[in-house]
Amino acid sequence: MLAAGIVLGLNGGAWWALPAGVLVLALWISWIIVRQVSAHAWVEREDDLMVRRGRIFRRVTVVPYGRMQFVDVASGPLARAFGIARVQLHTASPGSDAHIAGVPAEEAARLRDRLTTRGEARLAGL
């Protein structure tokens, strides 16, 4: 799409093709992001946390509370400006990539505390 725009633009005729291509691309990416965000969710169950992610390549991760080693809450300057944070769960496995992006900051802090408390209550070795 962008390439076609560039080609058209270079051929001299349609100067508007390039910005139009960029705009279409931006819209398309935004649509994908919106779709991805709407697919991203978590649920706190009695003994484990489930995180769902992705729409075309779907993935559901189940992390038992007793397996959490620590919980990170991170937010960059832009995320802080919007009052959201990213909650990352760490187990002893590098494979369990369970993170929740875009959690409202207060909810993130509460979630972290809840997870930590439940983790401590159920923590059992490795």
């Binding site: 075309i56 991760t61 189940v62 038992p64 397996r67 187990t91 496995s93 369970a98 490795l126």
Partner: peptide, 13 residues
């Protein structure tokens, strides 16, 4: 079973 850290299920198109 007691050594399972976490589980994931994934699915492509």
């Amino acid at each position: 079973h007691e050594r399972t850290q976490s589980l994931a299920i994934r699915q492509g198109p």
